[in-house]
Design a binder for these strands. Sequence first.
DNA 1: TGAGCAAATGCAATATAGTTGCATTTACCG
DNA 2: CGGTAAATGCAACTATATTGCATTTGCTCA
Lengths: 146, 146
Amino acid sequence: MCQDCDYHKILAAAGLETTRNRLHVLEAIGERGFPLSAGDIYARVGLHRPINRVTVYRILDLLAEKNIIERLSSLKRGSYYGLAPNENHAPHPHFYCTSCGRLDCLSPGSLAVDTEHLRNTFPGEIERVEVRVDGLCQNCLQQKST
Amino acid sequence: MCQDCDYHKILAAAGLETTRNRLHVLEAIGERGFPLSAGDIYARVGLHRPINRVTVYRILDLLAEKNIIERLSSLKRGSYYGLAPNENHAPHPHFYCTSCGRLDCLSPGSLAVDTEHLRNTFPGEIERVEVRVDGLCQNCLQQKST
DNA sequence: TGAGCAAATGCAATATAGTTGCATTTACCG
DNA sequence: CGGTAAATGCAACTATATTGCATTTGCTCA
């Protein structure tokens, strides 16, 4: 993710002003193929223009609340952020490597979860389902065996 | 979870000494029907006997590493801990209420995930799959509507 | 255009969760 | 009983995130 998303349009659709910081944050998240930590995003945005750490956190909170980005969890401290599912991106599971700490996107179809039954029977309200696979990525696995 | 687990036996099987602190940590986790945060566990164990925060963290790390307990993530900061899947407990998804912040166990069958295909095709090594449903629990949903 | 205003951002201080190094205590083994 | 390794305690520290308040930015309407 993502060449296909017009960030300006997305922000406007959510009723948010299109500031340079917000665009840079979105670009930082979208230009990598995998979710980033707040610290990573802060560092990447900072390459373009000085920005305050707090501003990054606030933008991330705002974008997550508006469902533009998605907050993802892992076994590491701190959250990761990726573009939220939308017309261009189907919801998909992630893979967390317990060795190198990188979070990767798995293809939407790689792990089928049938939420139908739960949605029909659960007494509360379901907003989203997060599926994360933990283990060793190919790289780390190979390095261990040599 | 869990009346069915003999914690002493479980610790011994993992080659760990059965200290009072470890038993109290396991009891604290097992006696509630849902996973607890490190802070909760620290507080509950402290009711029996003074214990150091660091000791709790170290025991949690150790038990998680030995697969006796399972570290769970949520949208909140910090991890939750529950008894790990074993002969008495099938792996199961969890529900995180974004309003009250409580993490609950869902029944093992409530959300079927077919990992077969992924396990056959994934180039790395898969250790576990964590499935978390986010939304509003029944309680919080009712309180909002009144 | 520019004054007024709300939203966005910056900055410093603080909070929360977890970690590290080292000293002390406990529990096992001969 | 004495020696030794494991477990625990304590203080300091790190990383991540949040809060309150001051300043800047950018939109709106005269």
